[in-house]
């Protein structure tokens, strides 16, 4: 078995790999990691979303926002040989890290990120086959291009596999 390499996907970043490589995003809080996988070509892609919408920004970095980031991820998947009708989505993140958010909307951005990612995927008709979102915990995720598994690790809850 070829181990493959682990490719880091930073904040507001997007990467696409092929089998046997893996994609990892570390310490997602209110951010959302959207993972796409094509079971036939084993092309895998991950985008690290920070905010729901690029509206109102001039020349926004596309991977930073749910609306533009998911579109770009689908495009990059296609460029690498994946087909939209075969794609399956998983996502994790979108937590509210701090309790007692009060009036601070920044602290409540997580659930809005999740909704925006869901809408962006629905627009493409891509089915959501696994998710671990919300709550109040940070997550590190790893997408395996070999079989589309998404590992989600938290400080308190250990590891779950989507």
């Amino acid at each position: 078995m070829i181990a493959g390499q682990v490719v880091h996907v930073g904040m507001a970043d997007l990467k696409v790999v092929r089998c046997p490589d893996r994609l990892r995003s570390v310490g997602l809080g209110s951010c959302v990691g959207v993972a796409l996988w094509d079971p036939q070509t084993k092309v895998a892609g991950l985008v690290h979303i920070m905010l729901p919408s690029a509206e109102g920004f001039t020349d926004p970095p596309r991977a930073k926002f749910a609306d533009t980031g998911v579109d770009w991820l689908v495009e990059m998947m296609q460029q690498n040989g994946a087909r939209v009708e075969r794609l399956r989505a998983k996502m994790a993140g979108g937590a509210q890290m701090f309790a007692f958010a009060g009036k601070n909307d920044l602290l409540k951005i997580g659930p809005r990120n999740v909704d925006a990612c869901r809408r962006a995927l629905a627009k493409w008709g891509i089915p959501m086959v696994g998710e671990d979102v919300g709550g109040s915990t940070g997550r590190t995720i790893e997408l395996h291009s070999e079989d589309g598994r998404l590992w989600v690790r938290t400080v308190r809850g250990g590891l779950i596999v989507l």
Binding site: G27, G29, V155
Partner: peptide
Amino acid sequence: TSVPAVAVDMAQAILEVGMLTADAD
């Protein structure tokens, strides 16, 4: 100042909120 918010978790997940108002990247 706002009301203080406290959390125990991964450093990256906690600091993230400070970057939401930042420029591009």
